[in-house]
């Protein structure tokens, strides 16, 4: 990603992390929420990879606004040749999600059903409970107030949503690792910092390994994304599987290293782990995608290795 853009986004996400309204309006004023919209339509026309870089950054800061959702919504709209409105948007992949994230504040909801994309007027006021930190609204209450509707060339709803969540997870994994390392460096027990205990070093190194694996899987998947094109299902399934798996392990170890303080609402670890637990379920967790990958492999005759290395491997 362009360093300037990355720096601007990181600064906004850091400075305004505790003020959702100011955070949203500043992201919007800086044009970041329209990063994927073409320049003619008032956006930045960013590459797929740069947009996912922003989504990953949003995850790394546990941004309490629908930044990722809005970016994804603009992707669906532009793929369907529909103009993207300004303001907060939520997404609803029909048949997959129960809840629309940030439905209460989103002015519009982009609904994807197979290849059909429709832009609905928003504000879904019936909240549903969730393990996550961000509000979720009952998506079945979506209004029939459709502003526009159109088609995309391929059924990309779940895959694109899964890749976005995987990107957020990767960002959050890096953040949780940083947070846990600095906590372990400062916290002393038995007269020495936690980092001096080999048992703690091993937990942290396993967290590092998981974050690295998830990062590599998602980089490979993001590199395969093209506009006006079907998505690479294998690469995205692998990325969401690996990211969701890492989310579980990293959260568990992070809480173990932090001890009781990490189990309070005041301390910031929970802002990340609660989101990780939500995001790993969204658009299919590791078991869902393992099933999909396994079924696809079993349906193909011949050696598995040939499938894995087909077209240069995915």
């Amino acid at each position: 990603m362009e360093p300037m853009l990355q720096e601007t986004a990181a600064r906004i996400l850091t400075d305004l992390r505790n003020d959702a309204d100011a955070l949203w309006s500043t992201l919007e004023e800086n044009g970041l929420t329209r990063a994927w919209v073409s320049e003619e339509d008032g956006g930045f026309g960013l590459t797929p990879a740069d947009g996912f870089g922003l989504i990953r950054l949003a995850g790394a800061h546990a941004a309490p606004v629908p930044f990722a959702e809005t970016l994804v919504a603009t992707w669906f709209l532009t793929e369907a040749n529909l103009p993207a409105p300004s303001g907060q948007m939520s997404i609803f992949i029909d048949g997959v999600q129960r809840g629309a994230p940030f439905g209460e504040t989103a002015e519009h909801v982009v609904r994807v059903h197979g290849r059909s994309v429709s832009l609905h007027r928003g504000r879904l006021n019936e909240p549903i409970d969730s393990v996550g930190e961000d509000p979720l609204s009952d998506a079945s209450k979506l209004s029939d107030d459709i502003i526009e509707t159109s088609q995309i060339g391929a059924d990309i709803g779940v895959l694109f949503g899964a890749l976005a969540r995987a990107a957020q997870i990767c960002g959050a994994l890096d953040a949780v690792l940083d947070l846990t390392i600095s906590f372990a460096e400062q916290r002393e027990q038995f007269g020495r910092p936690l980092t001096k205990f080999q048992a703690i070093q091993h937990l942290l190194s396993e967290m590092g390994a998981e974050a690295a694996a998830a990062g590599a899987a998602i980089d490979a998947a993001v590199a395969s994304v093209r506009r006006d094109c079907a998505l690479d299902e294998t690469a995205i399934a692998v990325a969401k599987h690996r990211a969701s798996m890492a989310a579980g392990i990293v959260s568990e170890h992070a809480h173990q290293v932090h001890g009781a303080i990490g189990y309070t609402q005041e301390y910031e670890l929970g802002r990340f782990t609660r989101r990780l637990w939500r995001w790993r379920e969204d658009f299919g967790g590791e078991t869902f995608w393992a099933n999909a990958l396994g079924r696809a492999a079993l349906a193909e005759p011949g050696p598995l290795w040939q499938m894995i290395t087909k077209d240069g491997g995915k």
């Binding site: 590599a216 899987a217 490979a220 393992a290 999909a292 990958l293 396994g294």
Partner: peptide, 14 residues
């Protein structure tokens, strides 16, 4: 089981 195989595939691809 598909899930067992798929899990192995995802980890190997990574």
């Amino acid at each position: 089981p598909a899930k067992v195989l798929g899990d192995l595939i995802a980890r190997l691809v990574t």
